[in-house]
Design a protein around this nucleic acid. Structure first.
Lengths: 307, 307
DNA sequence: TTCAAACATGACTCTGAAGTCAGGTATCTT
DNA sequence: AAGATACCTGACTTCAGAGTCATGTTTGAA
């Protein structure tokens, strides 16, 4: 039974561990920063696995190594196997499993984090670890098992893959009242001509959300030159809350802003934005890890309620 | 990354191998027959895994051990993992994967074995290993991954599990011409009254097929007392081919019998038997091992053509 | 051209687990 | 009750691989 895996030495869990540390860090030197001893050990272990599997697991790219296609497949395979062993062990010890849940930084902060206790409960008391990444990166990480659940834009989910609706994104125009002339009415505030006169904060990295906001402003006839360009919507909101400038925020991000200090209106140019946030998962992985589709749909429903 | 699998010693591939050898053999002494040294090694390795996983993997039953529920789950898990490593390795070495295909002994002989070359081709040049077992045992083995494909009775397949029709079982009454009075016509041969006068071979082990044949004879008014009781339909066919007695054979088993020497008629009491043979597989396992459902349906179609 | 960084390799020591031997314990058969 | 079988455990030796140290090679930056 699988005698040829054992008949010849060369395969060991420690070697797989060494390989995985390089695979997940991205390079040997990142896997063992400043540790020449550990670096030489990992290098040797990778070579020994290449000999055992009769294939190259890495390829040299300049000074550093990257994974070959075979190395990429082995990484996914061994990640799964180690995950299953860890799950089995935790089950036997009566301890909860760990899951990784990812979202964009602002969605993580405003939507996911508040829901973590309820999500943990739905997942049998699971330990949840959050990771902030872009939607596309998260979609990829879900496909190859590095992230279990992701709250991402629906259009980042690969065609035909599992997801459940969390919410439709809505945008709100948030204007510190202090920036408006006394007596300005809501109808007046809804006019793009007025917006032209306000300082704005916006995103800077050209993500889909930021691009959509800028395009909408353009379409509304506003020469949109934000005063502040921020790394994330978290920072945009902070500046708005401070009264420093106006901003267009997702509805999630506007919660908690003082209505006394900030005028909050639907951002009508993006009324029909239509983008949705969904909970995305890899069905094969979640089934293997003991979570059925109906539970995951409940997780999505819980996130929707938190919105 | 999975540091707690490694932070404490105790988990090694050799130990898992020792555990699997006991799990698959059914006991330590069967895993290491007559080898007291190896037997003591396996015993120790199982203990060390139990310490690592903090659970009992075996329980004592009289003198011997059996697997605990946790041991059973670990067996399935590790079997899968070793299978995947072996598949990966073979892929990298450019060698074909191995699959196990099971059927009852006679189905194996008459249906599966002739189709093996074509099946291998459909499965990418796979190495095929056959195993003969009862339908129920095979269904169970498919569920926990020990057998990849099984040709079994449709009613042995668990509800809702994957299968594709191979054939409807038909039965043929096979009468050596030498046992008939000269001038006996086919209409005469179809009469149960005549059957009463013939010696028969039948199965002995009370399987579903055998039971159905005996019941049908009874219903036809025949006091069915077979002269020979055989371990399998293979032997029944041999006796018929020798001209020693009549028998009721599945249509598969009648092929190659000489029409000159053997009168072959549909066995009308079981005309509406309705039982089907199907190809049964575990979708999760076959997908993991790189074979999609449409390929497996082609395998079933190939077997149907061989019939 | 020189230097730094990333990785590779030779050579060595250390060690956890494999492997072995001997004998003990519990269960079952005779 | 005695003997055989299945498994367990103590104690020991062996060894494959881990771990370490030192230095080499290749690539890229300065």
């Amino acid at each position: 039974m699988f005698e040829n895996l054992f008949s010849k030495g060369g395969l060991s869990l420690e070697r797989l561990r060494g390989f995985m540390s390089m695979a997940e860090a991205g390079s040997i030197s990142k896997a063992a920063p400043g540790d020449a001893t550990r670096q030489s050990q990992i290098s040797r272990q990778i070579r020994e696995l290449e000999e055992f599997f009769q294939t190259e697991l890495t390829k040299r790219r300049g000074k550093t190594l990257t994974l070959s296609p075979a190395g990429q497949r082995l990484k996914v395979l061994i990640h799964e196997q180690l995950q299953d062993l860890e799950d089995f062990r935790k089950e036997q010890e009566g301890r909860p499993k760990s899951y990784i849940i990812g979202a964009g930084a602002s969605v993580l902060e405003w939507l996911v984090t508040p829901a973590l206790p309820a999500i943990s409960q739905l997942l049998g008391g699971a330990i949840l670890r959050t990771e902030a990444h872009r939607s596309r990166s998260l979609a990829e990480a879900v496909q190859d098992g590095r992230v279990d659940l992701a709250v991402i834009r629906q259009n980042a989910v690969p065609a035909g893959k599992n997801h459940a609706l969390v919410l439709k994104m809505r945008f709100l125009l948030c204007i510190p009242r202090r920036l408006l002339r006394p007596g300005t009415t809501e109808p007046e505030a809804k006019k793009p001509a007025l917006w032209q006169t306000l300082p704005f904060a916006a995103g800077r990295d050209g993500g889909q959300t930021d691009t959509a906001v800028r395009a909408a402003m353009q379409d509304a006839g506003v020469d949109f030159q934000p005063r502040f360009e921020c790394g994330s919507m978290l920072q945009v909101r902070q500046l708005v809350a401070l009264g420093a400038c106006a901003g267009v925020l997702p509805s999630l991000g506007a919660r908690g802003l003082s209505a006394e200090e900030t005028l909050i209106l639907p951002f009508t140019p993006l009324k029909d934005y239509g983008r949705a946030l969904v909970l995305h998962w890899n069905e094969r992985q979640m089934r293997r890890r003991g979570q059925e589709v109906d539970v995951l749909k409940k997780v999505a429903a819980q996130l929707a309620r938190s919105a």
